[in-house]
Amino acid sequence: MYRIFSHFSRSFPFHLKPKLLNQEGNHGHLRKVYKKISVFQSGLSKLHPKRDTRIHQTAKSFHIIPDAINIRHCREADIKTFLQLTRKEGWDNTEFDCRAVLKLDSSSFIVAADDADTPLGFIVVFDMFSDTCYSGQLIVKDAFRGRGVGRKLLTALWERIGEKNLCIYSTENLIESYRKQGILLESIRSIAYRGIITSGCKELKTNENECDIVPLTDHIWHDLLAYDSIVYKGKSREKILRLWFVGEYVYTVVAFSKGKVSGYGSFIKADDNQYIIRTVFGDNSKVVDEILDNMLARIPLGAMLTFVLLADKEVPSRFSGFEPTIVTQTMSTKFKIETESDKMFYICYHFV
Rank of each mutant, 00 (worst) to 15 (best):
42 S>R: 12
15 H>S: 04
93 N>V: 02
32 K>C: 06
218 D>E: 14
92 D>M: 03
95 E>K: 14
45 S>L: 09
320 S>I: 06
157 L>A: 06
323 E>D: 07
138 L>W: 03
282 G>L: 11
344 M>K: 07
45 S>Q: 09
344 M>Y: 00
203 E>L: 13
323 E>K: 08
139 I>F: 02
270 A>M: 11
84 Q>T: 14
195 G>V: 07
71 I>L: 12
263 G>D: 07
187 S>I: 02
297 A>F: 13
50 K>H: 10
294 N>K: 15
220 I>F: 09
103 K>Q: 15
202 K>V: 07
87 R>S: 14
165 N>R: 11
17 K>E: 10
309 L>N: 08
196 I>H: 05
151 R>W: 01
264 Y>P: 03
108 S>T: 06
165 N>H: 14
308 V>A: 07
300 P>V: 13
260 K>F: 09
223 D>K: 07
277 I>E: 02
249 Y>S: 13
225 L>D: 05
198 T>D: 11
40 F>N: 11
72 R>G: 08
111 V>T: 02
319 F>E: 08
220 I>Q: 05
189 R>L: 10
286 K>G: 03
303 A>S: 15
333 T>E: 00
285 S>F: 04
287 V>G: 06
237 R>M: 05
160 R>H: 15
330 T>A: 11
136 G>W: 00
102 L>Q: 14
61 S>P: 00
61 S>T: 13
224 L>Q: 08
220 I>R: 05
266 S>P: 02
148 G>W: 01
55 I>Y: 14
224 L>A: 09
204 L>D: 11
312 D>P: 00
298 R>C: 14
75 R>Q: 14
99 R>A: 03
241 L>R: 02
81 T>D: 14
142 D>L: 02
120 L>E: 06
